[in-house]
Structures are given as C-alpha cells and as structure tokens.
Design a binder for these strands. Structure first.
Lengths: 255, 255
DNA sequence: GTTGACCCTCACGCGACGTGAGGCCTTAGA
DNA sequence: TCTAAGGCCTCACGTCGCGTGAGGGTCAAC
C-alpha cells in the first residue's frame, strides 16, 4: 500500500523535488525504502504531508514546520484549529486588498489622487502565525494557546476587523503618548497597558500580568515584533515593554 | 514633495532593500536623485509602486510585473480589474482550504481516515494569473483580454466554483477519451473540443477557432500548461492541441 | 564641530526549490 | 531474454527575492 515519490507528488500536487527536499530537511521522511532505494510513503506520511502543506500555505518556514510537527506537545486538533484561524485572517486580508483595488478604481474613475496612506494600508503584515507560534514556543502555555485557537476559530471577518481596529487603536494611542514624551510609568500610559492586557484576555486567552510582562519582553527581544511595532512609532516596542512591566509591578506580579 | 527611500518604505510597508532591488531591476525607478545621490520618489512613483505591490501580492514574478507595467499597451483600469479578479480567485481558494481543514477536523473527531484525494484537493494551483498574462502576451488581443477581465471581475465565489467544475469536467471527459484510445479527430472528441471553445467564450471572452487553436498550441509549447494539464492525464495537453486544431480545421479556420 | 539618523554601493548568504546530469531499477512488449 | 520507456536515486549548480552587514558619505539639530 506504500506510494512512490511520484504518486505522492501527483496526489498532493507538489513536485518530486520538493519531496526530496523535505526528506533532506527531516520535515517529511518516507516510512520506508524499497530494496532499490525508492522512497515508500504510508498513509501516516500522507497525513503528515497534509499538515506540512497547510503550514506551508500559511507561509511558515519549513524549518519551523518541522519543529512544530516534531514537538512532543504537537496536537493535531489544535494545529488544525490554528490553521483555520490563520486562513480566516488571510481571507480577511484579501478582502482588504480587494477594497484597496476598488478604491483605486474609484479614484481612477473620478480622476482623483488616492490618499497616500490609503494607497498602501492593505499591504504589510501583522502575521498572527508568527505571534502564535512564538507564544507557544516561549511559554509552553498550551492551555492559553489552545484557548486562543479555540476562541478565534469562531471569529468571523467582522470579528477580525473589530479586533484589529481595537489593537491598532491601542498601539496608536500608546504611540502618541511616546511621541508626547510621557513616561511609560505615567498613569495614563499604564491605563493603556492595562487596556492592552484586557484586549488580549478578551480576544485571545486569559492574560495574566506575568504573561503580559513576558509579551512585552518578547516585543523587545524578538526583532520581528520590534520591527512591526516600531513601524507605528520608532521606539514603541521598548516603551510597551516598560509600560507592561510597570503595569505588572503595580498589580503585584512577582519579578 | 519628493519622498526618500525610507519614507516610501514606511508608507508602503516594504523594506528599503526591496526598493533598492526594484530600482536595480528597473521595476520601480525613482523619478529623481538628490545631489547626494539619494533616491527621490514622486506621487507617480507611488502609484506605480501600488501596482507593483498588487501584482506581487498575486505572486507575479517581479520580471513579469516589470514587463506588464512597461508595456505600451498597459491599461491601469484593466490591470485593476484583473487584480480584483485574481484576488477573488485567491479568496475562493482560501475557502477551499478552510473546508479542507474542516474535513480534517471532522475525520479526527470521528476517528476516520480521510480519502486521499480529498486530503489534497485544495492544494495545487490552476493559477489564472499565468493564463491571463500569457494570453495577453501571446496574442496581443487586448479586446479579448479586457473583455475577460471585465466579465470575470463580476464573478462571485459561486461563479468561480461553477466555472472551475465545468472546466474540470471537460478536462476529465477528454482525459477519458484519451485513456480509451479515441483519436483526437473522432467526432465525440471534437464535440468536447467545441464544448471547450464555447466554455471559454461563455466564461472569459469570445473565443474564435483561430484563438482556440492557438490556445491548444500554447498548452503544448509552454511547460507550465503542459504540466498542469498532464496532471489530469499524461499526454492530455498534446491530445487537446490535436483536437483543437482538428476542430478549428473542420470549421474552416485558416492555417 | 559633533552626533545620530539617513543615504549610497557592494556583496555574501538564505530559503525553497527548479533543472539537469549520470546512472540504476522496473515493467511490459517483442 | 533483451530492449525501451518510464521510474527511481544522488549530486550539484542555479534562480528569485530579498536580508544582512560592511564601509563610507550626507543632512539636520544641538
């Protein structure tokens, strides 16, 4: 019942070369080899390949996919729920792009010039896959992770829009405080840090002060987050970290 | 009013390096340079960048984007309509992927094994961007191209599903004739070739016998099409070409 | 004048394969 | 049994679209 490499390639709509590559990487190794050295794939291999392809579709780097699938804590159901969530987010982004095209068409029809910010607002990424995978890895908080996946899997486009608007609003407000020279420990700033923690609790998972503080540390220590957040306002990631730390301290979270 | 490279990068959510790269490629060259050699971008440059990013989002290779935008026949409105269409197709595909995830979740919940074909059916590409761009380039039939873009821009998800099902059905039927050893010139096969021509006329643009014959030639001469079509049944692309040629000849199309 | 942010060109490297070379294996048909 | 076609293997160079860093010049505010 084993399949050879070309049979799998045809079935899964990937190239033979890709399957070789995945074998080399240890991402998807065939369960067996014929006496001639031919790769032989089983049903379990196919199931693993499906997971690989879902994650690949969601732009996860192959090495990261390998790590996720190899992790002893890997849970297929949780993975599928997360993948579903991320596909939903992708669809939402495609919608935004379509609206951007419509706006460009309108501008063209009316002979007007599009606002610069509006021209590009649908591009760029807040890629939740990076966020979620990192949370999972950094804190090993499987319950929080699962809760997040469970909760967001039910979100519709409108939910994602609301969620994103709310998050962007918080970031913007914090960026303005930074720009105005307010210290991250000022009450107004701490109130926003608290609002951010509650935003996470509301939309993703229960976010304790300890976790929230860790999130702030991660914003600074991981350049992917730093870059994304600092695109709102240079220095914002550090500012958030400081505010989250101060917020956690005033609520008695242990160091 | 000119913008420097970092201002544009921030606005458009791309990297400075990407903008350098696009300049090198001749894809997006700044309209000016300061005395110090700094790149200076204008509003027109921003508009071109928006087009670049739309096409990039749709996975067009950069060299191809450059060719399209540089083409004297480039029409912004037609491009936007096509981009809109392709984004719709992408959204449709995301939907299919989401259904695939749901199917995997169901199978997991019920402890069953997914059908192999179903496991992977949402993966792989019939990428219309390749098709449309090639049509535009090969035949320079701008009217047909525009008609196609105009028509399909109004299609909804259901339309795309119907369209795709119909196309797949035709391919499958032709593949079965190939498998059964029927010559491409047999009446039954020619009837399917005619149905295919009408399918194109119905869903995309008026497809003359000359154009249809050219489409068949393209299926054979361009490995991207050959591979895709031959994945249905090996040798199908050549078979289609022969059937389309014969169909055109029986309808008096000039050689 | 100094400093920090910005800019330039140059160039190596990465990830995910595509492509082709050279040669062994399998199967069906003569 | 032999042959031919299609399949498989490993090896390795190359492509595309940048990321990253080096070395050095420019600009504006203090």
């Amino acid at each position: 019942m084993a399949l050879t490499v070309s049979q799998v390639a045809r079935l899964a709509k990937v190239s033979v070369r890709a399957l070789h590559h995945y074998d080399e990487l240890g991402l998807l190794c065939p369960s067996g080899r014929s006496e001639a050295g031919y790769r032989l794939y089983t049903q379990a291999d196919l199931e693993r390949l499906q997971q690989v392809l879902f994650f690949r579709e969601l732009a996860f780097p192959l090495e990261e996919i390998r790590r996720i699938l190899t992790d002893s804590r890997f849970d297929l159901r949780a993975a599928l729920l997360m993948q579903r969530q991320l596909l939903t987010e992708r669809a939402s982004r495609l919608d935004a792009l379509r609206h951007a095209v419509d706006a460009a068409l309108d501008a063209l029809d009316q002979g007007t010039t599009m606002d610069r910010e509006k021209m590009f607002e649908a591009f760029g990424d807040f890629d939740p896959s990076k966020y979620e995978a990192e949370v999972k890895e950094r804190w090993g908080d499987t319950e929080a992770y699962k809760e997040s996946a469970r909760r967001t899997s039910r979100y519709k486009k409108e939910d994602w829009s609301t969620l994103k608007a709310e998050g962007d609003q918080l970031m913007k407000a914090l960026g303005e405080h930074l720009g105005a020279g307010h210290a991250p420990t000022e009450p107004k700033v701490l109130a926003l840090a608290e609002a951010h923690r509650q935003y996470i609790s509301k939309w993703f998972y229960p976010c304790s002060y300890v976790i929230h503080r860790g999130l702030g540390e991660m914003y600074v220590s991981d350049s992917r987050f730093t870059e994304n957040i600092d695109s709102v306002k240079p220095g914002l990631s550090r500012y958030l970290r400081d505010a989250f730390v101060a917020n956690a301290e005033r609520h008695g979270a242990e160091s």
